[in-house]
Every structure is written in C-alpha cells, then in structure tokens.
Design a binder for these strands. Structure first.
Lengths: 340, 340
DNA sequence: CTGTTAGCGCCTTCAT
DNA sequence: ATGAAGGCGCTAACAG
C-alpha cells in the first residue's frame, strides 16, 4: 500500500517548529493525562497544533508509553445479535473511559480463539475481554499465567475475572413465569452445553420447578447451538414427542426462541395460545416479532462496563447483573389442562 | 494500566542473542514480505524465534514501515445485521489478504463519522472502508483530497471508489416478482432517502412498474429509517390507507419487511395470503421467519472483497454485485382481484 | 516550566 | 548474506 505524496502527516516536530519550542515541550503540553498547563507557550503550542491539524501517532506514543488505550474484544461472531450488542456496549463504555475498543471474531474453534488473541496482543492492546470463554477453554488460564490483563464477559470459567448476568436468577424468573401462568408440561432448550450461561439458566429453571414440585423429564431438555435453526430443530423434536408436546418452552436465547416460534407456527399451532415460548436476552427483535416474545432482559451496558473495569482484577472476581423478565404475548396460560 | 512484571515480551534482540546473530539479520529473516532465505543462519533464527514465541510488534514495525497491514472499517452500528454481515465479510477478505480489519461504529451523525475516521487514522490504518456514506456526506471528498486510500461499501457518492450491490437491478427483480405474481396494488417502503441504495432500489422497482404499465402513487411510497419499528409504522400507515390497502409491499430492507410482517399480522391479516411482503438482503433470519420471507440476496462477500481491492483506486471506480431473488412463502398471488 | 538526551522495537540504508 | 548505524514519532529521565 503506497502512501500518496500529499499524505504527509504533521508530527510533533512540525508543531514544535511552528510554535518555536522543543518537541518535548509540545509533547508535554499535548499530553492529556496531566492537568493542562496555562502558560503562554502552552497556549501557543495548542493553537499551532490545532491549526496544523496535529494528531498524535498512537503507534509511536504507545511504543514509548507501553500502553495504548486500546482494549481488545474477542467474540465468536458479530452476526450473533447478542455479541453485537455486547460489543457495542463495550465500545460505548470504552469510549466513556477515553479508550478504544477493537474487536476480533474467532468462531467457535478454541485454536482460532487463541490465534485471534495473539493478533490482538500483537497490536499492543492493554488488555483483552473474552466474550467467548467455553468452560473447557484453557485460554483464560494461559492469560492469567502470562499476566495479561483480561476479563470474561457474559460467561465465566470460575477463575478469571468475569462480568456476567445472573443466569441462574434469569432462568428462575423465566420458569417461574411459566409456572405462574399454570404451565406444568414445560420444556427447556438450552444453549451449547459448553457455556456457563446455558448451565446456569437451566439450573435456575430447575430451581423454580423444584419449588413448584413440577417435573422436567430428560427428554424435555434439549441442549443445542445458539442459532435460529437449532431452536427450530429442537422445537420440532419437542412437538413430535410422545405422549404430548409441552405447553410451554423456555429457550435459553432469543434466537432459539425465534426458531421455536417458527417451528410452532409451521406445525399449525399458535404461539402464546397453543404453546407459550419464552426467550432470553430481549434483543430488539423480540418485541417486534409477529407475536411479541416474552424474554429475560440482560443488562448489557452494565456487564460491559464491569468487564472493562475488571480487566486485570484478581482471579475469582465476579459481578453478576440481575436480569429482568419482560412479559409479552408469546406466553399465556395453557389451553390444555395440566396433566394430573 | 500497569504492566505486570512477568509480562516481558520477546523482542528481536532476544531472538538475535539466542541465535547468535544481529538484530538486522533476524529482522530480515522474519520479514514475510520477501522470499524466505534458506541459509543455515536463517533456519536457526526461525527456530529460536519459534521457541521463544517471538511476535513482531506491529506498532514498532508499522512506525518504521509506514504501513501496518490494518484496514479501518466504519459502520453506523453493528447491531444492524446487514452491517454485521458486511463487516464480517470484510474481515474474512482482509484475513485472506493477510491484513487485519478494525471496525469503529459511528451512528448516523456525520460529525461522529468524521471523528471516528480520525480515530481510525490515528491508529495508522492503511486505508478506510466506509459503509456509511450518505449522499450528502463530505467525508469521502475530504479523504480524496487528503490522498487517504479508501472505498465505499454498499453505497456510493458518485465519486470515491465504491463496491456495492446492483440496487437498481435488485429493485427491479423484486418488483418484477410481485408483478409476475399478479400484484398491481403495490407499495414500497424505502430506506432513508439520504442513501444511494434506497433511491436505486426504488428506481429499479419503478422501472419494472413502468414496463408493466402499473402505477405507484406517491402515497404508496414511504421513505423511512432502516429499523424494524420503522417498517412496522410504515406498514401500519399503508394498511390504513384509503381506498384499499396494497396487496403487496416491497421493503428495501429485511428489517423493514419484518416490521411490516409484524404490522400485517397484528392487523389480523396473513402474510403471503392477504398481503405479500418482500425484503432485501436476505439476512439469515429471513428464511427462519414464521412465514419465510422472500428477499433479494446481496453478495456481501463479493462486495467486501471489492471494497478491499478498491481502496486507493482512482475516483469513479465502481463495482456492482448482482443480487439474486430468493422466493419464499411471504409472496404469493393476490387474493383480491386487481382493480380495473 | 523548558530543552537535551536517550531509547521504545523495528526496519533500512550502507558498508562489509 | 551479514552487521553497524540511524531514524520512524513520541515520551521519560535528567539537567537547567
């Protein structure tokens, strides 16, 4: 990539020359980490820098300072709406703190995750936020050993600092809602079993069921991916199950729920009326579905801010943001009477 | 952000010491831009570098080389699925070329767009891809003047190099499909009027209508945002219109279409049966909607690759990827006979 | 407060 | 093919 000739950027030297001072003076005056000097020279430097359109070269500066004000974020994919929301929230939080967030996507392969992390570290990020941690992943451990500031977002590995939602509470709220509506024949579509969130949400749901003395047979729990298709397939299986399909489905994710809605509709049933469906995360689409989707809202902004603050925190530090149930039309009392 | 003591990174000097050669030699051997040397020393250097886990410091390297192998991407928001798909496609294309993509989101405010661009340039990106260009935006012009390599993705300003879909053709395909099904009472929900894509898609649709001798009264064209809610509101207006609502709606975007689906369903009508709805971009959700959505598929991968290749190309260079109509259940022949 | 000096890690002449 | 030296742009440590 050749630089065009007119692309000459103004450097400290140019500003120094223009203001008739040394580069160190300019460097100091323009250093926003210290209280701004009010001297005449400083005033002049600022004016000249402004006129010339000076911008600090983050590379050179970072090289010297050892820190770049950049935080790296790792997500499996941005086309997952939850990840996009999480990243945007982190970006906002970073901006509010005067730093910059860069994201890398790495899919679901741990090897790619490791590679992507190295790529981020190559770019001298001050720390890394992983929104990817699988329970069986060794990357957080390796970051801990290497002393690299990092935190986990939305998930935990039980060791590295983590900012997540209270998935257990969310699962409880969700199932409790279905039970309160009168459902007893319920099913759960959990996310991938290698995530802490999938397990915790199911755990909370089981807690609610136990309190109500209701059953959740094994064939009413399907662990699957996090995509719409996965939800569709899972719901199809549930609907075809003997002796009778469930009257309510709790999906551990809005995408799964949307897939389930699709399957239920395709089966000629009505969502809410025939089968209640409940999602998780409350992505904007949930409220805009043909039948608005009841969902458990996650406080992404809060989680993002915590993830940022927790980078470099001691191990076993965790924050859990409490989720909120948002009831909508996709959940309603069961039409069939509960079986005896 | 303090560096922990154990976080000492391996530098060229370490490798040089380990291999018993000078840093320049190591630098040369490890330079992947030149054909790899096969000398014994080179072999040794590579081995030592590998053992020590050496990673080139992109900052320092970029400082000297003047190029960093990084391309900046600007999008309004990543929570827009189209933008997320576009960015992921660019990221893939960049990776295939051995470079790295960093994204910044800037919302819809031109001032924020400018700021975000500067932030990216501060980080020494080799060029910028704008997936944001409004027709009235002066940023591309300013980049042209400054000689900064850049290109526009998905939209054009008629001057800077641009990689986009053939929106006119897409609009034509879409409307042609509705006309072929027998619809004559059609409406169009376009995206924001400040985008080239909204205008071109409507233009193509008008072309098809003209061919068929069909009318598109002004009150059957609604220009709005790009979100689900906007589509919902627009469809609501169309449904309430006198003397009769349209039998088919072409939305210039899947989100708008999904919002329209929601409005149609809420009005007690059936999508496909009572009102045909057609979207644009074919995001994955389209196929998974309760009533699968007919949509015009955009070749994001192709557009992304072109955008990357076009960075720094002469002005007025444009590539247009041809879209494909994907017919699904949301479009069907009209129930009502077309008015005379 | 200011200027001088040294160097962050790397790449690139220029010799050898 | 290799090594020594200088410098990319900026900042920290040191005098003044």
């Amino acid at each position: 990539m050749e630089q065009s000739p007119e692309r000459r950027v103004v450097t400290l030297k140019d500003v120094a020359a223009g203001a008739g001072v040394s580069v160190s003076t300019v460097s100091r005056v323009l250093d926003d980490r210290t209280p701004p000097s009010r001297s005449a020279a400083a005033e002049r430097v600022r004016r000249v820098a402004d006129e010339l359109g000076y911008r600090r070269n983050v590379f050179a500066s970072g090289l010297r300072r050892g820190a770049t004000g950049t935080v790296g974020v790792l997500v499996p994919r941005l086309t997952d709406h939850v990840m996009a929301m999480t990243y945007e929230a982190i970006e906002r939080a970073a901006r509010a703190r005067g730093s910059f967030a860069v994201v890398a996507t790495c899919g679901d392969d741990p090897e790619d995750e490791r590679r992507a992390t190295e790529t981020l570290l190559d770019r001298n990020v001050d720390g890394v936020i992983l929104a990817t941690a699988r329970l069986d992943d060794t990357l957080p451990a390796s970051l801990r050993e290497r002393g690299i500031p990092h935190s986990l977002a939305l998930r935990t590995d039980g060791a590295s600092p983590a900012a997540l939602g209270d998935d257990d509470a969310g699962g409880y709220f969700a199932m409790r809602h279905l039970l309160d509506l009168g459902h007893r024949e319920v099913a759960v579509i959990t996310g991938p079993w290698f995530t802490s969130s999938a397990r915790a949400r199911l755990g909370g749901a089981r807690r609610a069921l136990a309190e109500a003395g209701a059953e959740l047979p094994d064939d009413r729990v399907i662990s699957t991916g996090y995509g719409i298709e996965a939800g569709n397939a899972a719901a199809r299986r549930l609907l075809g199950a003997a002796p009778a399909p469930p009257t309510a489905i709790f999906a551990a994710n809005d995408n799964l729920a949307i897939g389930a809605v699709s399957a239920v509709t395709a089966a000629g049933l009505t969502v809410g009326d025939d089968v209640s469906i409940l999602g998780y995360n409350d992505i904007p689409l949930a409220a805009m579905m043909p039948v608005p989707l009841t969902s458990v809202r996650t406080a992404f902004d809060q989680i993002a801010a915590s993830a940022l603050d927790l980078m470099g925190a001691p191990a076993h530090t965790e924050t859990r943001a409490l989720p909120t149930l948002i009831p909508r039309a996709s959940t309603a009392p069961p039409r069939r009477a509960p079986s005896p």
